[in-house]
Amino acid sequence: MLSLRVNGTAHEVEVPADMPLLWVLRDVIGLTGTKFGCGIAQCGACTVHLDGKPVRACILPVGSVGARQVTTVEVVGQSAAGRKIQEAWIALDVPQCGYCQSGQVMSAAALLARTPQPSDADIASAMSGNICRCGTYMRIRAAIKQASEA
């Protein structure tokens, strides 16, 4: 039995320690906002925050999370950075299919929290791990800039 703190709630989960956090969130706890896209930390769809830092949940063994707080897209809007990012995403109609956007929002929220006024280079660096197959990158950049001015 592993103890996990997800979105402020304690969970006891009976899973092997090497199971990636992604599948614990999705299949065991039932939080499906965090997406599966590649399983090898190449696309960023599974991005969550561990104590505020963005990590790829698809390769993170749940046993290595320990006491760190897991935050997912379902509650990231409770932080100022997360809320600003989500508002900008909606205002600029960023999503197309939307599947990658959970991960994009999580990466962007983490960026904004640590770098309130990100440059283009900051955005490229923080967001280049997140693939959008629909190609919404221009709006993602614009939305991050808009959120940074909010």
């Binding site: 906002g33 379902e74 599947y99």
Partner: peptide, 26 residues
């Protein structure tokens, strides 16, 4: 605006991979 925008942005949108019913196997 895009109809599903809010649900998508807050992780509430349901895709095929997100479908869940009681007693589901994988």
């Amino acid at each position: 605006g895009l109809l599903d925008n809010h649900d998508i942005t807050t992780g509430r949108a349901g895709y095929g991979i997100d479908a869940r019913v009681e007693g589901m196997l994988h």
